[in-house]
């Protein structure tokens, strides 16, 4: 082996070490539209019992190009759907001939902070409701309109608009009282190793965040950025659809969007983000 080859080898060895550690989360700061800084890293809440030291937004694990799309509302492709949802908000529908706007006026006022607290226990109904369940309750019982299909176009658009009006506020999902049982059920699902690959959410997003799995840079699987516009399928993606994809990737039988299991899982995973800023609609690859 000649001297050149040796140097080349040494170079490769020297390079491969920092590349390997280059995993992890980056140190960028999220400033939206040049003026609003969002909390994308924060201390983990006590109910995680030390499972994570720090909460880190999924944004920190994406490439600079993907990240930058989320920093300006004119570049963020998810904003088109926020606009569409504003039309839905103002459109009268159903037997009562009412629009969301008739009861809730301007969403910038009435809906600020709402997204940060969902899923949430509803006392009258005696159930934990996701934001989409609450919207559909309004549609069916207040407007006499049909429920929107779970995690499909109109419902995800509206969820994105509501997220937009809570953007920057810390996630603050309640897990005590009557929601506690469902939270425990969601936690159980989070740690269950499913499918022929026998992998749980925690195996990838708690034990291995920061590591690459093939070309995918594993994040903590946080959902403060949902709905997420994915470059891969060029549309807004709901939380349950994302869960479904991840469960499928363990070679398991999945649950369906809107199922009791995914509602419980959403409650639990949302609570894992308590303290991170609402970011939806985010941009992901």
């Amino acid at each position: 082996m000649n001297f050149k080859a040796l140097t080349a080898l040494a170079l490769v060895a020297g390079l491969s070490a920092p590349l390997a550690i280059a995993g992890g989360a980056d140190d960028d700061t999220m400033v939206i539209n040049g003026d609003t800084e969002l909390v994308t890293k924060t201390a983990a809440p006590a109910h995680l019992d030390g499972a994570l030291d720090e909460l880190i937004s999924g944004w920190h694990f994406r490439s600079d190009e993907t990240q930058s799309l989320q920093l300006d509302d004119f570049d963020n492709p998810g904003m088109i759907f926020v606009d569409q949802a504003m039309d839905q908000w103002n459109a009268a529908e159903g037997s009562e001939g009412k629009a969301c706007a008739d009861c809730h006026n301007d969403p910038a006022d009435s809906m600020a902070g709402v997204k940060a607290t969902y899923p949430k226990w509803n006392e009258e109904a005696g159930e934990v409701r996701t934001l989409q369940m609450q919207m559909n309750d309004c549609r069916v019982n207040q407007m006499g309109a049909e429920a929107w299909k779970y995690d499909a176009g109109a419902a995800v658009n509206m969820e994105a608009m509501l997220s937009f009006h809570s953007r920057g506020m810390p996630m603050n999902v309640a897990i005590d009282g009557p929601a506690a049982d469902m939270w425990a059920q969601g936690k159980e699902l989070y740690y269950t190793r499913t499918g022929q690959l026998e992998l749980s959410c925690a195996n990838c997003h708690e034990d291995n965040y920061g590591n690459y799995i093939r070309a995918d840079h594993l994040s903590q699987g946080q959902i403060n950025g949902f709905p997420a516009y994915r470059l891969k399928n060029a549309k807004l993606n709901g939380v349950h659809s994302r869960f479904k994809g991840c469960v499928r990737d363990t070679r398991a039988e999945t649950y369906s969007p809107g199922s009791a299991e995914f509602i419980a899982l959403e409650l639990y995973v949302s609570s894992r983000a308590n303290g991170l800023a609402v970011e939806g609609p985010s941009v992901r690859n």
Binding site: T192, R193, T194, G195, Q196, E198, K244, V247, R248, D249, T250, R251, A252, E253, T254
Partner: peptide
């Protein structure tokens, strides 16, 4: 397995 699937079909 827990919830065995048919390969990657879900």
């Amino acid at each position: 397995y827990i919830r065995p699937g048919d390969a990657y079909t879900g």
